[in-house]
C-alpha cells in the first residue's frame, strides 16, 4: 500500500503544481465548478470532459503495457469506431431512433473489440513484437475509417441523441466524465477484484516464471488487447458525439502517443509489470491541464507540443537507471565522511 502511494506521489504533486499555477493566473474559478443551465461547468470540468477519450484509451494502454506490450493502433481504432457509428446514423432516415443509436454504438464497439483481439492474437499466437503487430493497423486503420465514411466527414444532426454521448450530462456531470470514470472503476474492479491484475503483472514482470507457474499467458494477452481496442472504440464514440462528426484523418490523431505518455507519467513502467490505473488517470489529467496551463500563462497553443516533448524526455530519463547513476555519480563519489544523518537521507 505504501509503495502504491509512493508511486502516485509524484504525479499528484505535478498535478497540484499545475493547478496552483492556473489558479494563481486565472483565480479560483479555474478549479471550482459551478452549475450552469443544469450542468456542471468551469475550466477544470472542461479539462476533465475533454480528457475523457484520452483517459479511456490510456486505461486500455495501461493494461497492454503491463504485459510488456504496446498498442500503437488505438488512434486509428478511435477513428474507426467514430466512423462506423456516425456513418450508420447518417445513413438512416431517422437519426433520432433509439434502436438505431444503440445498434450503431454496439456495432462500433464490437468491431473495435475484434480489432483489438486481432492485435492480441498477432502478439500472443503469432509471436510478433507488439510494436510491429500494432503498427500494421496504425498505418492501415485510418484508411479503413475513410473506407467506412467514403472519404467524407459524416455529420450527425445536432438533434440526434447520439450527440448526448459527448455533450450530455448525468446529474449535472458531463456524460464523457461519467463514462470514463465508470470505465476506470470497472477496469479497477476487473483487475483487482479478480486475479486478472496479478496474473497480468506476473506475465509482464517475468514471462518465463509465469509459464512455469502454469499461467495461461496467451489468453490473457488477447483479452488485454481486446479491452484496449474496446476502450479506443468507446473513446472514438465520445469524441465523435462531442463534435457531431467523425473525421477519419484527424480524429484521435496522436492520441496513442498521449496515452503512452499518460501511462508512463502515472508510474507504470514501459517494461511491464506493476500497473497503476489511478496513476494513469492522474497522468491524463496532467496532460489535459498542461494544455490549458500553456494558454493561461500566455504562451501560444503551439507550445503544447514542445511542453509534451520536454515531459516525455524528463520522464524517460528519470526511468533510466543509467541516467540516474550518471546524475548521482558526483554525489556518490564523495567520501562517506560527513554526518551519518546524510547517509540515511541518501538511502
Amino acid at each position: 500500500m505504501s509503495s502504491y502511494a509512493k508511486r502516485l506521489m509524484w504525479p499528484v504533486l505535478v498535478l497540484v503544481a499545475l493547478i496552483v499555477i492556473n489558479v494563481s493566473v486565472t483565480g479560483f474559478d479555474f478549479i471550482v465548478p459551478h452549475v450552469n443551465d443544469g450542468r456542471l461547468s468551469g475550466a477544470f470540468v472542461n479539462i476533465l470532459r475533454r480528457s475523457a477519450p484520452l483517459l479511456l484509451i490510456a486505461l486500455g494502454m495501461t493494461l497492454v503495457i503491463a504485459t510488456k506490450g504496446i498498442d500503437l493502433s488505438v488512434g486509428a481504432v478511435y477513428a474507426i469506431g467514430a466512423a462506423i457509428a456516425c456513418q450508420m446514423i447518417i445513413d438512416a432516415p431517422d437519426q433520432s431512433a433509439a434502436g438505431l443509436i444503440f445498434s450503431a454504438i454496439a456495432l462500433a464497439l464490437v468491431v473495435t473489440a475484434v480489432i483489438g483481439a486481432w492485435n492480441g492474437t498477432m502478439v500472443a499466437y503469432f509471436g510478433i513484437q507488439p510494436i510491429v503487430a500494432t503498427l500494421i493497423l496504425m498505418i492501415a486503420g485510418r484508411g479503413i475509417a475513410q473506407l467506412v465514411t467514403g472519404g467524407q466527414i459524416p455529420k450527425v444532426e445536432d438533434s440526434s441523441p447520439f450527440t448526448q454521448l459527448g455533450r450530455g450530462e448525468l446529474f449535472t456531470v458531463p456524460l464523457p466524465i461519467v463514462i470514463a470514470v465508470l470505465m476506470l472503476v470497472a477496469l479497477a474492479l476487473l483487475t483487482r477484484r479478480t486475479a486478472l491484475g496479478m496474473l497480468l503483472e506476473s506475465v509482464g514482470g517475468n514471462p518465463e516464471a509465469s509459464r512455469l507457474a502454469g499461467i495461461r499467458a496467451k489468453g490473457i494477452t488477447v483479452l488485454v488487447y481486446l479491452v484496449c481496442g474496446l476502450c479506443a472504440g468507446l473513446a472514438g464514440l465520445i469524441g465523435a458525439a462531442n463534435l457531431g462528426s467523425a473525421d477519419a484523418n484527424n480524429g484521435g490523431l496522436w492520441i496513442e502517443l498521449d496515452a503512452i505518455l499518460a501511462v508512463v507519467i502515472g508510474g507504470t513502467a514501459l517494461l511491464g509489470g506493476r500497473f497503476y490505473l489511478l496513476g494513469t488517470a492522474i497522468g491524463v489529467v496532467i496532460i489535459g491541464t498542461l494544455e490549458d496551463t500553456i494558454i493561461n500563462v500566455g504562451l501560444s497553443s503551439q507550445w503544447q507540443f514542445t511542453a509534451k516533448a520536454i515531459v516525455v524526455f524528463v520522464v524517460a530519463l528519470l526511468q533510466s537507471p543509467e541516467f540516474r547513476g550518471w546524475i548521482l555519480k558526483p554525489f556518490k563519489r564523495r567520501p562517506a565522511a560527513p554526518a551519518p544523518a546524510k547517509e540515511v537521507a541518501a538511502k
Binding site: 496474473l199 503483472e201 514482470g205 517475468n206 516464471a209 507457474a213 502454469g214 495461461r216
Partner: peptide, 24 residues
Amino acid sequence: TEGLVGDLTVAENMILAMQASRGW
C-alpha cells in the same frame, strides 16, 4: 529468471500457481 516475479509481493508470488490453476 524462472521462479519468482520480482516486482510482485511475497503473498502474490506464493499464490501464483494456485491462482493459475483456478484461472483469472
